[in-house]
Simulated assay, not measured.
Amino acid sequence: MFVARPTPGTKTLLRDVARERLRAEIISGRLRPGQRLDDDELALQLGCSRTPVREALADLGRLGLVELRANRYTRVAVPRDEDVLPALQALGLLFGGVVRLAVPSLSDRSRSSLFRRLGVLLDCMQEPGWMPTADAATPVYRTFINECHNPMLSAALLSSLDGLTFRLRNDRLHEALPWEHIRNGVVALRIAVDGRDGWRSERPGRCTCCRTRIAQTPVTGTTTRSEDMRSADRVPGVHPPGHPLRPSTSPDDRSVRPGGRAARRFRAV
Rank of each mutant, 00 (worst) to 15 (best):
M1H: 08
A4Q: 03
R5V: 15
P6L: 02
K11S: 12
A18V: 09
R19S: 13
E20P: 00
E25I: 01
E25R: 14
R30L: 11
L31W: 07
E41A: 15
L42A: 01
L42M: 02
L46H: 03
C48G: 02
R50L: 12
L57W: 07
L63Q: 15
L63G: 08
E67D: 15
R69T: 10
R69G: 04
A70M: 04
N71G: 02
V76D: 00
P79S: 05
D81T: 13
D81R: 15
E82R: 14
V84D: 05
L88C: 00
Q89E: 12
L91W: 13
G92H: 12
L94V: 00
G96Q: 02
G97C: 05
V98G: 04
V99D: 08
S107H: 03
D108N: 12
F115T: 13
F115P: 00
G119N: 07
G119Q: 04
L121G: 03
P128F: 01
P128Q: 04
G129Q: 06
M131G: 01
T133N: 00
A136V: 04
A137M: 12
P139R: 05
R142V: 15
I145Y: 00
N150V: 07
N150P: 01
L153Q: 09
S154F: 00
S159P: 00
D162K: 03
G163V: 03
T165W: 02
L168E: 04
N170Q: 15
D171A: 13
R172S: 12
A176W: 04
P178V: 06
H181Y: 04
V186C: 10
V187T: 11
R190S: 14
R200D: 10
P204A: 06
R206T: 15
C207V: 12
T208E: 01
T208H: 01
C210W: 09
I214C: 11
A215D: 14
V219A: 14
V219R: 15
T220N: 11
T222G: 05
S226F: 09
A232I: 01
D233C: 10
P236Y: 09
P240H: 15
P251R: 12
D252F: 13
D252N: 11
S255Y: 07
S255R: 15
P258H: 08
P258I: 07
R261D: 12
A262S: 10
R265H: 13
R267Y: 04
